[in-house]
Design a protein around this nucleic acid. Structure first.
Lengths: 155, 155
DNA sequence: TAAATATTGGACTATAATGCTAATTATTAA
DNA sequence: TTAATAATTAGCATTATAGTCCAATATTTA
């Protein structure tokens, strides 16, 4: 874990808000001239602190207005079963996130679909996945806070 | 919902993968010359399909190696209680996502903390929030698939 | 088919990225 | 505290990119 000074923190916060800031704009915001600013950004990228830049899309505009959390249990908990299941999950494009979690479920998925019909299709796909024993769904009614910037502390 | 042709879909997919592609690079990838490519990107931004660009950071590098889903129930379900609770959630920087969900919980939060100690601190803050009755936590053991690109269909 | 509309490609200007060097700042050791 | 060293920064020059304008092409519609 690389030490971040106050300027690095400002850079990271600015790029979390707007990943397409030009280096000149970024340098202004963090009170630095362009070249050292660029040097710091490159170092943050090389250090793996900045892992990439993504355009954020509005799922509703893309016909993906329904978001669902799907909790899933497997019938077998050996490595082979997990690997097979996870490989299948990676192929399902409507599954945006998938975590192995503690608690009553094994996996928690976050899924984007158009509507209940789309959800039904996906549910059937999930039920057919290898080693799936149990599925429970929670629908997102409203998003209160989404993809908030990470809290960064200088170190 | 604006109609997207095949070129728009390619643009959106390319920018989901890399939001800092130069317009020239993007134009090459979608087999278009620079100026119409730029025009399309601007239209996608103005239409609200592209909502922004963000740098992706590695939480582990920032001392936020622990991710937890927190399910939360309120004691009262009137508007005032919800509003007060949601306002408080917006102020908690370790809460990255917060959704109103169906099912046994009212709200589902996604939380980033350094470790169990950090989690304990946050848990106490959540318990002190107005109208909170019940809290249940699920720890993320491993991320199988994270922030996968949205599946986009031409229309 | 022909007219109208939308989209594209290319030239040009303004702006930004990037590498280099000198100067400044911070750090270490005496 | 001062001097020496190392790290970081600012400014400048060069190259690349963004963004605008207009003519040409493709598409749509009657």
């Amino acid at each position: 874990m690389i030490a971040l000074d106050a300027i690095d923190v400002r850079i990271l916060n600015a790029l979390q808000k707007n990943g397409r800031l030009t280096n000149v704009e970024l340098a202004e915001q963090v009170s630095l001239s362009a070249s050292p600013c660029l040097r710091r950004v490159r170092l943050l990228e090389e250090a793996g602190i900045i892992t990439g830049y993504r355009a954020q899309l509005d799922p509703a505009c893309l016909g993906l207005g329904m978001s669902v959390f799907v909790d899933l249990r497997l019938s077998h908990h050996n490595d082979a079963a997990s690997d097979e299941f996870e490989a299948a999950i990676l192929r399902l494009n409507n599954v945006i996130n998938c975590y192995l979690v503690s608690g009553s479920a094994d996996y928690r998925l976050e899924v984007l679909v158009k509507d209940l019909q789309g959800y039904e299709v996906l549910l059937r796909q999930l039920q057919c996945l290898p080693h799936v024993k149990d599925i429970q769904s929670n629908f997102v009614i409203r998003s209160v806070k989404a993809q908030a910037p990470m809290p960064i502390a200088a170190s």
